[in-house]
Each structure stands twice: as structure tokens, then as C-alpha cells.
Design a protein around this nucleic acid. Structure first.
Length: 582
RNA sequence: GCGCCCAUAGCUCAGCUGGAUAGAGCAACGGCCUUCUAAGCCGUAGGUCAUACGUUCGAAUCGUAUUGGGCGCACCA
């Protein structure tokens, strides 16, 4: 009905335009829900916006706008409030119509088509497959999955994609780490490199290698470490040390190197996939970095840039002139040792994304990668695509708190809390909700104790409890042999304050979904659901639903069932369950 | 040093892209269970929206400067 009201308003403005009272229509006609019910149901500031070009006082213009407003059964009255707002009071029938609409649309209520079927590619998480996902990745996962749900709800076609960095040096370090642990299982005496992956999961993967290959790839530690430069703890350079070990391992292992690598990446990747799936995060595509190298696209993209003079050579390395496109400094794409950088394949990856013909290309990155934005956009521009089409959403880190104290984490040493551990501790519902409850660019403190608590300070339980309470009411109705006939209820009986505010709250839902989706702000929906639940709890305490007056019972049940539907729809967009009882 | 993000009640955070008297939850205080789940509700108290200028009918919101915090500035990913 907001749309209808808006149309009426535009009609009126067009009439004024025809009469020359105003010179042009505003870009958008804002119609807002009012905070204060003495201001009616909706208010617009158009008269204030247009007063200057109409060269008259806002209040005078407001009167003219109202005069041109055609009669409609929607509106019961209009008022002008200083300095020039027009307040609309809707008729009771208009307000309660939302219940009918919700009941008719059911699970589809809240869906719209502002996205008009445009295709969007949403890349998120994309953590290096060098270990299990940790709580930092969890935020990106929950955020991305929710954005995808929201965008689909408003009519976009969305593909979720995970970019798998299965090529490059990190993979070599992973392989060597597994290999060394594998050797240790057979009692080989060796010093594990400072720069290797220390986590326990590496030991587990090494055991899998044993299970699959037995002693087949066993080599002597002496052979492996002979003449290798010193590690950091021994006064050497840890980078050089591990690089030397990588080269040696490849020599010593031959085809076994690939075999060990395979076991490692398969194990880690399947762990990540299971983890995300259990978290309710689904992907349409898993895009391999290695595939860009195998297909030659990485190479050909670099060649193209070289042919178009975007790349030059310096100090034995190939540099991409990203400064031509506003970056702070030029970036290396091929190192002096001939190995391409991560950036090089990333250029090809983004080119590939654009070539797939999406209308929107969206990346969700950890905020620590913000320095990377300029160079990626530069590469898109250099390859004759519109860098504006790439939208990069940054997600800040999440700190865990337990007992009021920050949980310390460090990735290198392997002492991090994994996403799986978090999910096991607080549950998927609380994790999903908490992650998106905060604005993504805001640092968040994830309070583990709060996420587990079962009081109204925990918003997840608060909202779910509202849903469970409604289910309970409906069960009671069944026990009392009340036949619920919501769609035929006489909604004009809903006149209590609690009912009016609940109706108003319900009518906000569609707009919240749309706004959350278009602005990539799931927290708007999270807050809305909290407000809706509050509205319901308040109503629940103020009015009994199952009363002796049968038609009143039916009307209240209709309202309550509509509320339940919106809670279910909203929670499902957030990936949170709606339990029938708690 | 340069760049990006942030600063709102004692605490954790919203504030619908410039609107009307800045809102929730927690913590504090006072009430509500013989009646649909008290995992709930009602009320009281709590603010120089970091600071200072500016933009205009109107600023927590936009601009500039300052202060204070986070992150980034690799031939790592």
C-alpha cells in the first residue's frame, strides 16, 4: 500500500508540474513510516524538498499537494505539520489489509522483483585451503550467505562462489608441512620449520597419507635437510629455509610430491565444504586458481597486459602499472624467480568473472584486504571493463569474548578457534544471527556467553521464543477445538494499541527486506525481527488471544498467524531456524 | 608518514543515506505469574551524538580540521 500511496503522491505532483507550480519532479518521492503515531502512518517531506524551486513556503506547497490528491479509500485523513511535512493517516481497513496479504502469500511474503532477474556473482569466504575455517571466516560466510538470500528474495539471480587458492607457495608450504609430519610418524628425527603449518590437523592429514600410501613416500630426514639453509630459530631466514625445503622435497619425492599434496588439499577442502554446508552456506561454484594456470588464462592475461604496455620489467620482475589507474604503487605480477604472484592469477580470475556475463560482480573480503582493492580495479580497467561494476564489501574481524575476556588467537601457531568449534559451542542459529547482527564494517565483539544464554538479552532466543509462543497458542487453540479460519476473520476487530502497532510493524517487513538486500546490510533485517518480536511479546502480555468472543478470537489468531509467518520468512533469510517449541 | 574503517547512555550496539522530542538490550531501581510458555511484559533513571568550525529551513547523518582507536602500506596470499 505504500506503493499506492506513493503513486497518488506522484500523480498530485505531476498535476502541479503541469500547472507550472513546480519545475520538475523530485528524483525520488520519499514516504517514510512515522516514528510517532500522532504523525499518522506515513509522512513525506516533498513539500520541504520542493519549496525552494516552487518559490513558496513549504506549508503552502503542502496544501496544494494535498488539494491535488485524488480521493482514495486508503487514506482516512491528511495533516500538515510544521515545518511542512504531510502526514497520512491510513484507514483501518488499509492497515489491516497487510494480514490478508501475508496469509495469501505465505512463504512468499516479502519477495519482490526489484532485482528484475539480474544475475549476480557473489564471491565470499575463499579462505586458503591450508587449514580449517576459523571464526573470522565465519563472519564472511554468514554475511555472504545472508546477502545471497536477501538478493534472491528481491529478484536477483545469485551464484555463490568460492575461489580456491590451490596453486602457489602456500600450497607448497602445506605439502611440505604434511610431508614432514608424515616422516615423523615413522620416527624420522627432524626439526619442523618455523614457517610450516603447525596445527594438529596437519598430523591428521599425515596419518591419512600413511593410511593411503604406507611407507611408500618415506625418505630419510638427512637426505631432506642436507645443506638446507638455517631456519629462523637457528639464526637463518625462515622464508629461505622453507623455500629450500620445498625445492628439495620436490626433488626427493618426485611424483610423490603431488600425491601428498592431493591428500592434503582434498582433505582440507572437503572439511571446508562440510563445515560450510552444515552452517547453511551453499555454493554454486568452487573456482580453482590452478584451473586458470592449466587453461592458460593466467598466462594469456599477463600477455595481453604486456602487449598493451601495462606491464614493464624492472629488477628481473614484471610490474603492472596500476598507478595509471590510481593505485599507490605499481605491483609485481611475475617475480624474478619466474613465479607469478597471487595478484597475477587474480587478474585473470576477475577477467574470467566479467567474461561470464554477470550484471553484478560482488566480492566479500576481510577488511585487512582493503589495500588490495585499488590494484584489482586497476586491472579491470586495464582490460577494458568497467571497474565500477565490481563491488567490494569489506567485513571487519570478529573478536571472541568468553567470561568478559578476549579469546586470544594466532593463525600461524595454529591456536585459533575454528568455525566448527564455535558452531558446536553456541549452535548454528546463534552463530548465524550474531555474525550478521552487526554492521559488516563494524568491528564486532562476539560474546560466547551471550550467544549461549537463554534470556531476552540474547536476541536469537528472544525472536525464536516469539515464534514458539505463537505455535503454542495455536496448539492450545487446537486443544480447545477452535477451528482457525484466519482468512475469513473480521480484521476490523483489531483495534487495541498492541494490535495497531503489530499491524504497522508487519507492514514494514517488505521494505526492510528490500533495503537490507540493496544496501547489503543484513543487520537491518536482524534488528527488524527483534522489533517485531518485541511488538508481539508486548501484545501477548496485553491481550489474551483465545477469548469467549469467537470472531475476536479469529481476528487475533489471524494477526498472530501473520506475525508467525513473517518471523519464519525473516529468520529463514538469515539462515536461522524457527522452532515450534522451546 | 600515506591510505581505508570507526567514535552515539556506565557496557554492547541501532538510528531507514538530511527530517519532527536521538532509540533498543544489558547493568541500576520499582512493579506484573489461580488466565494462551515469566526464555516474557510494564514503569523510572541514564546523552554536550569525540572536539571545533562550515554547508541550510533543518546535521548524529554531508564537508574541512583536530583528538583518540582498529587495519593496511611485499618480488605473501
Amino acid at each position: 500500500m505504500k506503493e499506492q500511496l506513493q503513486e497518488l503522491l506522484i500523480e498530485s505532483l505531476s498535476a502541479l508540474l503541469a500547472e507550472g507550480v513546480i519545475n520538475e519532479l523530485p528524483a525520488k518521492v520519499r514516504l517514510d513510516h512515522t516514528k510517532d503515531k500522532s504523525h499518522g502512518d506515513y509522512a513525506t517531506n516533498v513539500a520541504l524538498m520542493l519549496a525552494k524551486q516552487a518559490k513558496c513556503a513549504p506549508k503552502v506547497l503542502a496544501e496544494q499537494i494535498i488539494a491535488k490528491l485524488s480521493n482514495s479509500s486508503l487514506i482516512s485523513k491528511t495533516e500538515i505539520a510544521s515545518p511542512g511535512f504531510i502526514n497520512f493517516f491510513l484507514s483501518e481497513a488499509t492497515n489491516s489489509a497487510v494480514v490478508t496479504e501475508i496469509l495469501n502469500s505465505a512463504d512468499d511474503y516479502g519477495l519482490s522483483n526489484v532485482g528484475a532477474g539480474k544475475r549476480a556473482l557473489l564471491e565470499f569466504v575463499s579462505a586458503n585451503p591450508t587449514g580449517p575455517l576459523h571464526v573470522g571466516h565465519g563472519r564472511g560466510a554468514a554475511y555472504g550467505a545472508t546477502i545471497a538470500n536477501l538478493m534472491r528474495a528481491v529478484g536477483f539471480e545469485v551464484d555463490n562462489e568460492y575461489y580456491v587458492n590451490d596453486a602457489g607457495r602456500q600450497m607448497d608450504i602445506l605439502t611440505v608441512s604434511i610431508f614432514l609430519r608424515y616422516l615423523s610418524i615413522f620416527g624420522e628425527e627432524l626439526r619442523f620449520p618455523d614457517n610450516g603449518y603447525q596445527g594438529d590437523y596437519i598430523q591428521d592429514i599425515a596419518k591419512s597419507v600413511v593410511a593411503e600410501y604406507g611407507e611408500r613416500w618415506r625418505k630419510g630426514a638427512g637426505e631432506l635437510f642436507e645443506d638446507i639453509c638455517k631456519d629462523e630459530a637457528d639464526g637463518g631466514d625462515k622464508e629461505a629455509h622453507i623455500d629450500a625445503l620445498i625445492v628439495r622435497s620436490k626433488q626427493v619425492l618426485g611424483e610423490g610430491y603431488q600425491a601428498v599434496f592431493r591428500v592434503g588439499i582434498d582433505s582440507i577442502l572437503s572439511g571446508i565444504k562440510d563445515d560450510l554446508a552444515e552452517f547453511g552456506v551453499d555454493y554454486q561454484q568452487w573456482f580453482s586458481e590452478q584451473s586458470l594456470i592449466d587453461s592458460g588464462l593466467a598466462k594469456s592475461t599477463t600477455d595481453t597486459l604486456q602487449d598493451t604496455d601495462h606491464i614493464y620489467e624492472k629488477d628481473g620482475a614484471l610490474w603492472f602499472k596500476t598507478t595509471d589507474y590510481g593505485d599507490e604503487k605499481d605491483r609485481v605480477v611475475v617475480r624474478d624467480n619466474g613465479i607469478h604472484t597471487y595478484f597475477a592469477s587474480d587478474i585473470a580470475y576477475h577477467l574470467e568473472k566479467f567474461d561470464r556475463g554477470y550484471d553484478k560482480v560482488i566480492n566479500i573480503w576481510g577488511a585487512d584486504h582493503h589495500g588490495y582493492i585499488a590494484r584489482v580495479k586497476a586491472s579491470i580497467a586495464a582490460l577494458n571493463h568497467d571497474p565500477e561494476k565490481l563491488e567490494i564489501l569489506l567485513v571487519q574481524f570478529a573478536n571472541l569474548y568468553r567470561g568478559g575476556k578476549k579469546v586470544k588467537m594466532s593463525t600461524r601457531s595454529g591456536s585459533f578457534v575454528t568455525l566448527e568449534e564455535l558452531r558446536n559451542e553456541v549452535g548454528n542459529d546463534a552463530a548465524r544471527f550474531f555474525y550478521v547482527m552487526r554492521k559488516s564494517e563494524q568491528h564486532m565483539d562476539f560474546d560466547l556467553d551471550l550467544a549461549k544464554s537463554k534470556t531476552n538479552e540474547n536476541p536469537v532466543f528472544y525472536i525464536q521464543y516469539a515464534h514458539a509462543r505463537i505455535c503454542s497458542v495455536l496448539r492450545q487453540a487446537g486443544e480447545k477445538e477452535i477451528t482457525v479460519n484466519a482468512s475469513n476473520a473480521d480484521l476490523s476487530l483489531l483495534v487495541e494499541d498492541g494490535e495497531k502497532s503489530l499491524l504497522k510493524e508487519l507492514s514494514r517487513y517488505k521494505g526492510v527486506v528490500e533495503s537490507s538486500a540493496l544496501q547489503y546490510e543484513p543487520h537491518q533485517l536482524a534488528y527488524y525481527l527483534k522489533d517485531l518480536a518485541a511488538c508481539f511479546h508486548s501484545y501477548y502480555n496485553a491481550c489474551p488471544f483465545l477469548v469467549s468472543d469467537e470472531s475476536l478470537t479469529q481476528a487475533r489468531l489471524a494477526l498472530v498467524i501473520a506475525s508467525k509467518q513473517v518471523l519464519v520468512n525473516g529468520l529463514s533469510l538469515l539462515g536461522v531456524s524457527a522452532p515450534e517449541s522451546m
